[in-house]
Design a protein around this nucleic acid. Structure first.
Lengths: 224, 224
DNA sequence: TAGATTGTTAATCGATTAACAATC
DNA sequence: TAGATTGTTAATCGATTAACAATC
């Protein structure tokens, strides 16, 4: 696989391609052109071909792309076949929901343990994932090769935990706390799920729509 | 407030500005320049001034921006003062976590009801929000002005529910199901929280980092 | 007043789109 | 072979950055 510097926009589109290809596979479609794929995703064929060409040549002139083959190329580009091991820190509401409902394995990630400070949780396990005391976090990291930490702790302790993780060789944090962990000088990778940022963007788009509507209404009022 | 066509990138930065300004307020800082704000957010001062200038003139030459005033301008741009009413569809794991933990009101959104099909949930309420039977969803929408629907139902019913919502005047969907709701011809606004897309991007970045490391290791191996 | 910093116009950079030769 | 569609180069478009006059 080529590994040139690929823009963020391209990377963010890869999971969407993956999802669409999974859908197509399920519908029994084994072959697709960049034109058709573009139609279905609301992208131009050019963009799709450009995106793929960052990583190699996956199509065939006159034919298009083989759905299954392309799917597996993208999965590999995303690192889904690398068996990254993850831990969850904080088995509160959201942490619990992730353990219970989210399929890490479908993303090729292996959730091996969870940590919490709450006595009543320690020793339990959900769907085969054990919950340990946060006390043992550092020791655990010493003995296990963990690439990804899912951070679902209260705001107040987020920064301390992050430092502990970074010091113990964790590569990346999947951040569910609503604070900005991305420090300029830290080498740790941070990917944020900011619920409130998302809802606020939504709120913006709704407001925009509402304003358009009332502007239109005001115009037609005038005409009458 | 101006309402020109504003790019998506700008809109996505607004919630970050808001969060930073809240932090500053809390730290007792009442005034900030675009230079300093840029430092703290990893953006150029130019970009920050350009972003704000989409909506008006919020600063003062030689002084900078008043933190509290700017904060409230951005809140208003995002529509946080419009009192949008929301409902939650699907009180499963993630729906429950949202009701229990997520502060809709901090985003200026009023969560007024939840809906589920599960008998044992119907009639209960969490933090003052009642849970009704999904049977009554359509009727409820007729009698209540709901701008936003939080969609946390199983994949299989997501499209049907979306159609029902669209037909009954809901403006926007905050989509927690892992499917592509964004139809080209539908006028409904969709904002996605795709957990797996996010984790897969993270997995990509980790892979990129790993490859860099091993490439570096291979190079220094050669030199020795 | 002098210094600081804005809002905005112009320049640069990067991403998307179009075009087309290569080829299955 | 003829038609279709790729991968890639060139053209366009949009977003970010730089520069600077205006002004607090």
């Amino acid at each position: 696989m080529k590994r040139v510097k690929v823009s963020n926009n391209v990377i963010r589109r890869l999971p969407r391609y993956l999802r669409k290809l999974d859908d197509l596979k399920e519908s029994g479609i084994s072959r697709i052109s960049s034109f058709e794929l573009g139609q279905q995703l609301g992208l131009t064929p050019s963009q799709i071909r450009q995106d793929f060409s960052c990583f190699g040549e996956f199509g065939q002139q006159g034919y298009g792309y083989n759905v299954a083959a392309l799917r597996s190329e993208i999965a590999s580009i995303l690192g889904m076949d690398r068996g990254y091991r993850a831990i969850l820190i904080g088995v509160g509401n959201i942490g619990h929901a992730l353990m219970d409902n989210f399929s890490f394995s479908e993303c090729g990630v292996d959730l091996v343990a969870a940590f919490d400070v709450k006595e009543s949780l320690i020793g339990a396990d959900f769907r085969g994932v054990p919950i340990y005391s946060s006390e043992y976090l550092a020791a655990f990291l010493e003995h296990n090769d963990i690439a990804i930490a899912v951070l679902a702790v209260p705001k107040e302790v987020a920064v301390d935990v992050t430092n502990l993780l970074a010091e113990n060789g964790v590569e990346a944090i999947w951040n569910f706390t609503n604070i900005e962990l991305t420090e300029p000088n830290s080498p740790i990778i941070v990917e944020n799920i900011h619920f409130s940022d998302s809802l606020l963007s939504l709120s913006y788009f709704v407001s925009e729509r509402m304003d358009e509507k009332s502007a239109k209404a005001a115009r037609s009022e005038k005409q009458v």
